[in-house]
Design a protein around this nucleic acid. Structure first.
Lengths: 210, 210
DNA sequence: TCCAAATTGGACTATTTAGTCCAGTTACTT
DNA sequence: AAGTAACTGGACTAAATAGTCCAATTTGGA
């Protein structure tokens, strides 16, 4: 009883710059491999080879593979949310939202629609495991928060105070994005992504009366 | 050269009723396991145990694990598309579309949002492998076809001949469904699914002028 | 009935895999 | 400079895994 649900003291945090660099190399390599092949198909040995670390280094910083996967989720979330926060931070108009759409489509096109959404793919694979699911849910919530904030700015700028349900709007937008990216990945075409985003943008415009 | 891209003669098709039953047992068991744990986390040994078959039986009907996974995709597609074809077949009104929405939400609620969409999850895991990707793309296309046909009936019934782009509409609807299901799975709430579907239905209503 | 083809059982092999262990090296503190 | 803690290298283990092989059994047709 008294299960330690939170971070166990088993896992060492790096205490020197060198240790931090090693840990970062491991997580970076693991993130790239998981992105390309999925978590289940990424072996510790492959991470070791790619990061030029050794087994003891991996198990010094991570209690087991699950902990490493959790770190990968956090790393990938940082990356994706960082990108989108950058794109959405100052957005305050429908035109800006459309530019964001174009940027997403462009990004997808550049990779031939391969890989889908880095977070969405992780979510599909890891949403049945409590800890990973929680981490992914939190990331999605933050992502939706960026939309919500942008919608609030759009609304404020247009001087329409009567707040539509911005949280609902942002969840619908995120769903369109995720569904659009999944279909784009499977059909190898950006079209479903474009259609889904255009629909969502129109929906936002209507609800915000813009 | 002359790579045999289509089905190789390596894999035996069952020629007796008994053989067909065995093959079906194997595919059924594999489908359930893949649904619960993903393809990469499903071992042949687990399939053998669950289906009460033996190793030689599995390898008699399937050249390797990939072939079995392909059969699982087809089986799951049959199941999901069968369900949705049943729900969408006679649909010819906005009210009918809303009933379909309620049914999907209900189904999702019944499983506590676990598992997401059986096809969507497979798509996220297997869209980077050519053969599996192709099978999944075809399934999604058929799925979209059911929507398209339903939209055509809705339009015809309302007497509005000027066809909006029904294919585009159906792709946006499918994207909303997939994204909504993925978020529902990760957030363990049907809310994003409901919001995404309501948005898509409104979009259809607008475009079809209903 | 009898035979060839279809099907089945499961032991066996090759690898791969997660995780352990400990001795050796490097870095920080005083 | 020395001592302690942090870090590193990699051999090793036990279990799991995909796939092979062949002898035994069952089936359907002549």
């Amino acid at each position: 009883m008294n299960k330690n649900v939170t971070a166990l003291p088993k896992t060492a945090l790096p205490k020197t710059a060198r240790g931090a660099a090693t840990r970062a190399r491991i997580v970076d390599a693991a993130t790239a491999l998981v992105r390309a092949r999925g978590a289940a198909n990424t072996t510790i040995d492959a991470v070791i080879e790619a990061s030029k670390a050794s087994k003891s280094q991996v198990y010094h910083y991570f209690a087991d593979k699950d902990e490493l996967v959790l770190a990968v989720i956090q790393r990938q979330a940082e990356c994706v949310l960082g990108t989108h926060e950058g794109l959405l931070r100052k957005l305050n108009s429908l035109a800006g939202l459309r530019r964001w759409r174009d940027a997403v489509v462009e990004l997808t096109e550049q990779t031939n629609c391969a890989g889908g959404c880095p977070l969405g793919s992780l979510a599909a694979e890891l949403s049945e495991t409590p800890r990973t699911r929680a981490a992914l849910a939190e990331s999605f919530a933050r992502w939706a928060g960026y939309f919500e904030a942008a919608f609030a700015r759009m609304q404020a700028r247009a001087g329409k105070t009567p707040a539509s349900d911005l949280e609902a709007l942002s969840e619908a937008m995120l769903a369109s994005l995720q569904g659009g990216l999944l279909l784009a990945q499977t059909l190898r075409s950006t079209r479903p992504l474009e259609l889904a985003l255009d629909m969502a943008i129109e929906h936002v415009a209507t609800r915000l009366k813009l």
